[in-house]
């Protein structure tokens, strides 16, 4: 009898060796979070992603599932973020008329707002006596995660702290965009979508799609392009220099030969 109970208690530990356990757990928390969100009357200050994440964390802690093992299983979910990011290009293309109409505000706001976001965080943390390592982890929080990790490493910060910072920033940015949209007030949905994407990263973008607001993936797109352009320009110069003939023609020949 005691053996039976022991085996019963060991269920979570044994099942969690399969990725299906992490997938089932994440899916259940996702649906439970959405159900609770609807139950609470869709409060602005509590996005479903927070509800789901809190429940998931509680279940992992209560069942004493190894967190690292959970993340290994959940890899099968997070790996889909790659094609999902590519998929963001499609709504962006469908909103191209918004981008054409707003290109000037976007070009002016993006670098300024992104820089100020980092300045605010570092100055506040510095004033409250944070160590240089913490400051270095907070500094790049305004840019997207893959770029930010590179900057943090250069500055000598901690990557897990940076990732945590990005996630907390994402959640609170969603709340503040909702709140400030009412207080200021800002009614233009294009501005709200842009602010969600710029300040809230992945979480903000997901939130924008939940409430069907356009332009959230745009800051990510613009940052990516900004980082790529110097490299593409270098490549262009390299190709021009290494091929004979007038530069423009040489490049056309080069691309044509690649196609063939």
């Amino acid at each position: 009898m005691t053996e039976l109970i022991e085996r019963f208690i060991a269920i979570p530990d044994i099942l969690s060796t399969s990725p299906m356990f992490a997938i089932g757990l994440t899916l259940s928390a996702f649906f439970a979070g959405n159900w609770l969100f609807a139950r609470f009357g869709r409060p602005l200050w509590m996005p479903p992603v927070v509800l789901s994440a809190v429940m998931l964390a509680v279940v992992i802690a209560v069942l004493s599932v190894d967190y690292v093992r959970y993340q290994e299983g959940a890899f099968w979910i997070t790996v889909l973020l790659g094609p999902a990011t590519v998929a963001l290009g499609i709504p962006l293309y469908q909103q191209i008329h918004h981008i054409r109409a707003m290109w000037l505000p976007i070009v002016v706001t993006l670098p300024l707002a992104a820089t100020l976001a980092a300045v605010y965080a570092v100055v506040i943390a510095w004033a409250l006596g944070a160590t240089p390592e913490v400051l270095a982890s907070l500094a790049p929080k305004s840019v997207t995660a893959p770029i930010a990790i590179g900057i943090t490493n250069q500055l000598g910060g901690s990557v897990p702290l940076l990732m945590g910072g990005l996630l907390i920033t994402g959640v609170v940015a969603t709340l503040f965009v909702d709140l400030l949209a009412k207080w200021l007030p800002v009614e233009d949905e294009r501005i709200l979508g842009f602010a969600l994407g710029l300040n809230g990263h992945a979480i903000g973008t997901a939130r924008a799609f939940e409430i069907s607001i356009p332009l959230a993936p745009l800051p990510l797109w613009a940052w990516g392009l900004r980082v790529c352009l110097p490299r593409l320009y270098c490549l262009w110069c390299f190709v021009c220099r290494s091929l004979p003939g007038p530069p423009g023609q040489a490049v056309i020949q080069f691309t044509n030969s690649r196609k063939l």
């Binding site: 605010y120 913490v134 907070l138 305004s142 800002v186």
Partner: peptide, 28 residues
């Protein structure tokens, strides 16, 4: 470093959201 980190994240994000919205609104 709880205080410094959470203040930086909360207040910093609040200010940066405010900045983005106001900047964008005025430029538009």
């Amino acid at each position: 470093q709880w205080l410094a980190v959470s203040a930086a994240l909360l207040l910093g994000t609040f200010l940066s959201v405010l900045t983005t919205l106001l900047l964008m609104k005025s430029v538009v």
